[in-house]
Design a protein around this nucleic acid. Structure first.
Lengths: 206, 206
DNA sequence: TCCCCTTGATTGAGCGTTCAACCAAGCATG
DNA sequence: CATGCTTGGTTGAACGCTCAATCAAGGGGA
């Protein structure tokens, strides 16, 4: 069914997420993927090239594997932001706060990653932000004119990653929940300001 | 002057921050601390026990090494929050976005740390939040009654950690700066709401 | 003498990686 | 049909090396 190559990539994807890159040995991957070292090194010159393939899989999976299920049946663009955050909360919850965002974990584990790896980590963040920015752009008329969708999306990622980090450390969802709660409060205040006319919705109006 | 033990701890502290725990070998530490393996294992049963000593050093250093210099000459409690964030920005800037918060890095590198390690990571976060909470408590009368100093401090840490993570990945301060900028906007709006009386300052007033 | 500390060679496990051999399917030639 | 070559993939033992950790021996102040 699955090709050996695919088995290796998705086993590595899972293990890198569970234990990190450094703590996952090639032998671990081979055992769980039921493959031999020769096969791995037939497809990937080094372990790092396997990591690159994993990061490419994440990049290509953002939309179909993460966003599509999270946003199914959620039309309101701002609610989509929180539906996505709820996905991460769910991941934490289901794993007793062990697994959070694998990209974030790799980003901090690999202190000085080789350029192609660092670039793919950045591309993954970038893709995430681009999609979430779309949500804020879809809610533009409800937000003050000065509110930058790009920056709001960036803040959302920042809060998600920071929250996951702490929740994993505390083994408690509190830190994550607090981040989401205050992000919601902030967005509510932005909406309120826009609708009150306190903060003009359009530059031309100010 | 410095005892061998201290040299080992502070060398390890530096190297763990620069390269991470897993990527720092005992041999690295011994070389840079100018010590021998026997000495290290005389004081610390395992490498992990050395990590614990490092985390204890961080814990004890938060106030004198981090906060005191950051807050010197800054009286306004809310400005202290941003003075602290500016410290982290400086660290990123001076290292070309390589080193951020060592606690955060360790927290994500060590996926399933042994209980004493995890606990010390949490204690370090906790100490940081406790001190920053003091800032928000000091500005209580300028904030709405519903604003929880603990949660605001938690959000500050969340944004700092998430921002550092991204800035390190992008090798650019943009993500960090955006987080700080929007936190400032949020706090401004809270202050505005409190002074407008839109959001009562005290529960008894509502 | 005793005890704390240091020395540094040594150990053995585990790591990423290599390699020669093997296999099955496809294809061309006779 | 048969034969032999090619291609793409698999096998798993073995390699060289680094790692954390050990230990017997020695040093020096009290």
């Amino acid at each position: 069914m699955d090709s050996t190559r695919d088995r290796l990539v998705f086993t590595a994807l899972r293990l890198f997420g569970e234990k990190g890159y450094g703590s996952t040995s090639v032998a671990d991957i081979l055992r769980e993927a039921d493959a031999n070292s020769g096969s791995l090194y037939h497809f990937f010159p080094t372990k790092q090239d396997l990591l690159i393939a994993v990061l490419e899989a994440y990049r290509d999976g953002i939309e179909p594997m993460l966003l599509a299920p999270a946003w199914e049946g959620v039309a309101d663009p701002l609610e989509r932001v929180f539906a996505l955050l709820a996905r991460y909360r769910q991941a934490l919850e289901m794993t007793a706060c062990l697994y959070g965002c694998p990209i974030g974990s790799l980003a901090l584990e690999l202190h000085e990653p080789d350029p192609p790896v660092r670039e793919l980590l950045a591309i993954n963040f970038e893709g995430w932000v681009r999609h979430v920015r779309g949500c804020f752009e879809g809610a533009r008329e409800r937000l003050p004119a000065g509110a930058d969708p790009e920056k709001l999306a960036r803040l959302t990622l920042t809060i998600m990653e920071g929250g996951v980090m702490q929740s994993r450390t505390y083994r408690s969802l509190d830190a994550f929940d607090t981040g989401v709660e205050l992000l919601r409060d902030y967005l509510n205040r932005l909406e309120q300001a826009a609708s009150d006319g306190r903060d003009p919705k359009r530059p031309s109006e100010g």
